[in-house]
Simulated scan of single mutants.
Amino acid sequence: MRTEGDAWDIVTGVGLTALGVATFRALESALPDPLIRDDYAALFVRAAGEPHFLDILRDPPKIAGRPLVPGFMGLRTKFFDEFFLSAVAAGAGQAVILAAGLDARAYRLDWPAGTVVFEIDQPKVLEFKDRVLADHAVAPRAVRRPVAVDLRDDWPAALIAAGLNPDTATAWSAEGLLPYLPGAAQDSLFDRIRELSAPGSRFAVETAPTSAAAGNFANLEAKYFDKNPFGEIDPTELFYHDERADPAQWLHDHGWTVQAVGSADLASTYGVTLPELPEELEQQWQRPRYLSAAYDAGSGGPG
C-alpha cells in the first residue's frame, strides 16, 4: 500500500511495476515479428535479478489459455513510440518522459539530430538504468538528460535546471503514470505541463482506470491468468482511487485538442489480430485509454 512520501528502487513498490513492464516489452521484442523492438528491456530484467520476472521471461503467462503476447505491451509501447516520432517530426525539439522507469526510447528511437530527451523518475530507478546501459556500453540516440526528482515535488524547477526551454514546443508523455498519483497531484501535473508548454506542444497520456475498473481487472486477472504477471505484487494496490478530473475533458478545457483510442483501435491500426477472449476481457480492450493531445494556447480554456 502507498504511504505519504514513499520512495522505491527497481525491485520495490512502484519501481517493481516498471520492471514488470520492461519484462513484457522484452517478451514482445523476442517475437518473430514484434510490434516494437526494445533490445534493452531484457538487460534490465536480468540485471535486476528479480526471480518472478526472470521466470516470466522463460515461461510467459497465459490468459484464458492463450499466450499473453503479442499485443499485451506492444500496442501501448508502439502508440507512445509513434507519438514521439510524430511530435518531433512536427517540430517539437525536446521530449519529456514523466515517470520514465526503464523506458529506453532515448536509446532506441530514431530521433532527429539535436533532440533533447528528459527522463524524470526516482533517483534509484534512474541510477539503476544508467548503470545497466553503461555496463553494456549503450549510447543514446538523442541528447539524454535524466532528472532525478519525485513528481510529487517541484519537478518543473528541476526540469528547467536540466535545460528544458518552455518557449520551445515539447512532446510530453505520461505512460502508465496516472493511477500512481493522487487526484490532486494529477491535476497539478496537468497544470504544470500546460504552464511549461509552448504552442505546438503535444501530450500523450494513458488514462487511469476507475476504481471499479481497477478492482474488476484484479478479479479478471485471478480468473483468467494462469500465473500473476506481476508476481506477489498487485499493481492496483499501489493505485490511488480518489476522485480526479477526467484527463480528456481537462485537456480539452485547457486549450488542447484531444484524440482518444483504445487497445482494440490500435490493434486494427497496427494490423494485429487479437485472440478471441471472453466478453468481460474483451470489454477491457474496447475502453478508450490512450489520449494524444496538441496544445494551442489560444483555444479552449485558460492558457
Rank of each mutant, 00 (worst) to 15 (best):
E4M: 06
G5C: 04
G5E: 01
D6M: 06
D9H: 09
L16I: 04
L16C: 10
L16F: 01
T17M: 09
G20Y: 02
V21D: 07
T23R: 06
F24W: 15
A26P: 03
L27T: 09
I36C: 05
D39E: 15
A42C: 09
L43D: 06
A47M: 07
G49Q: 10
E50Q: 13
F53M: 06
F53G: 03
L54K: 02
L54P: 02
L54F: 00
D55H: 08
I56V: 12
P60V: 02
P60R: 03
P61S: 04
I63F: 03
A64I: 10
G65P: 03
R66Y: 06
P67K: 02
P67W: 05
L68D: 04
V69A: 10
F72V: 03
L75S: 05
R76W: 02
K78N: 10
K78S: 12
E82L: 10
E82P: 01
F83P: 04
F84D: 04
S86I: 01
A87L: 13
V88D: 03
G91K: 09
G93C: 07
G93P: 05
L98C: 08
L98I: 10
A99E: 08
G101A: 08
G101T: 10
L102N: 05
D103C: 12
R105I: 05
A106Y: 00
Y107A: 14
R108V: 06
D110L: 11
P112V: 13
T115G: 12
T115Q: 08
T115L: 11
V116S: 07
D121H: 13
P123M: 13
K124W: 08
K124M: 15
V125Q: 11
L126M: 12
F128E: 11
D130P: 01
R131W: 01
R131Q: 15
V132G: 04
H136L: 14
A137W: 13
P140G: 13
A148N: 10
D150W: 14
D150A: 15
D153G: 09
P156V: 12
A158V: 11
A161L: 11
A161V: 11
N165L: 09
N165F: 11
N165I: 10
P166Q: 13
D167T: 11
A169W: 01
W172Q: 06
G176L: 08
G176P: 00
G176D: 00
L181C: 06
A185G: 03
S188T: 04
F190K: 06
R194V: 14
S197H: 05
S201G: 09
F203S: 05
F203H: 03
E206T: 10
T207L: 01
A208W: 11
A208C: 11
P209Q: 11
S211V: 12
F217D: 09
E221D: 13
A222H: 00
Y224H: 10
K227F: 00
P229C: 00
F230N: 04
E232V: 00
Y240K: 06
P247V: 03
Q249K: 15
H252G: 10
D253N: 15
H254E: 09
G255E: 11
G255K: 12
G255Y: 10
W256G: 08
T257V: 12
V258K: 14
A260F: 13
S263R: 08
S263P: 03
D265S: 15
T269I: 14
L274I: 13
P275I: 08
P278S: 07
L281N: 04
Q283V: 11
Q284M: 09
Q286L: 15
R289E: 14
Y290S: 00
A293T: 02
A297I: 02
A297N: 08
G301K: 06
